[in-house]
Design a protein around this nucleic acid. Structure first.
Lengths: 163, 163
DNA sequence: TTAAATGCAAATTTTTTGCGTGATG
DNA sequence: CATCACGCAAAAAATTTGCATTTAA
């Protein structure tokens, strides 16, 4: 759970905060730990609960406040949702695609590389100055497929091509 | 403004609603018109204002209600945002990429084709049953670049490769 | 006349903000 | 002692829901 690269990420984030001139309070350090330890892109509320186990008095506003600092320093990727709470990716803070389960709301990283070359082409074709890309794949995760009574996901089942 | 294909889209949407068994009330017909007439992916509130010009008593709840029907019949694409209102694409209701201006919040369709073949590969690689994809490019639109005092967008300027 | 459509207002949810207090360098 | 961190509570904003009424097939 405390893999070396995850520890390294925590150090990176701490350094980024220090470089920005803010102080590393115990609550903030704990927040970084909780964020990085989570396997599933936690929401602000989930981070709050995690921090509260160690600092029960912590308020949600402080969580949002610190997340804002992390966003400003490029140390966390905010995955925005409309009806639901936003989710945060501290392990890989740069834009990358995600898989989102419509059933259980889990968010997984997608490891396949994106075609970054197309960004330049799109800028050229549209005149937009492009800052970042968001790509999400919405579907049903393997666990939820099983729960729904379907056969095993079988790694290559019939993917709907509904889009 | 009332291009033939746009008229056709309205007819398609009406038929889809009828097929679903709901009635085409005047308010709903006007909503379709407003949605399709808008060049810039209107929000529920903007649609509301448009409908209100003809039916002043219309409530926002009715707008949301009808949008929900359109979503259920696959006749509108909802582009969700966290801090801001969701936007709706009735002209092209199937998943396709969008360009979103961080400055003025305009939303443009991106015409470049997406690689749909990769959906199957991703399903195979992850076990997810994939339903749809969302791809958004966030940046600064040509107009806002000019307003910000930069040189003309020049169709191919330095696109930031920040992501 | 039965069910659907609608307006209105309240409720929900997430995130932000204002203000006062306390810790810290 | 001046600033930053923080808790608390209120505010904001978008969307949903409950309920009563009107409309319409």
């Amino acid at each position: 759970m405390a893999q070396p690269d995850l520890q390294h990420r925590i150090l990176e984030m701490k350094q980024a905060l220090l470089d920005r001139g803010v102080s590393l309070t115990p609550r903030r350090e704990k927040l970084l730990e909780v964020l990085i330890a989570s396997d599933n892109h936690p929401s602000a509320s989930e981070i709050h609960e995690g921090v509260r186990r160690y600092y029960p008095g912590t308020s949600l506003a402080t969580i949002y406040n610190t997340i804002e600092l992390l966003k400003e320093t490029g140390q966390v990727l905010e995955i925005e949702f409309s009806g639901a709470a936003n989710r945060y990716d501290g392990r890989i803070p740069d834009s990358h695609p995600h898989l989102i389960c419509l059933e259980c709301e889990r968010v997984d990283d997608l490891q396949l590389p994106e075609d970054d070359g197309s960004l330049g082409e799109i800028a050229k074709a549209t005149g937009y100055q492009i800052v970042r890309r968001r790509t999400d794949y919405y579907g049903i995760c393997p666990e939820c497929q099983i729960k729904q009574g379907g056969a095993a996901p079988s790694k290559g089942g019939d993917s709907t091509s509904d889009l």
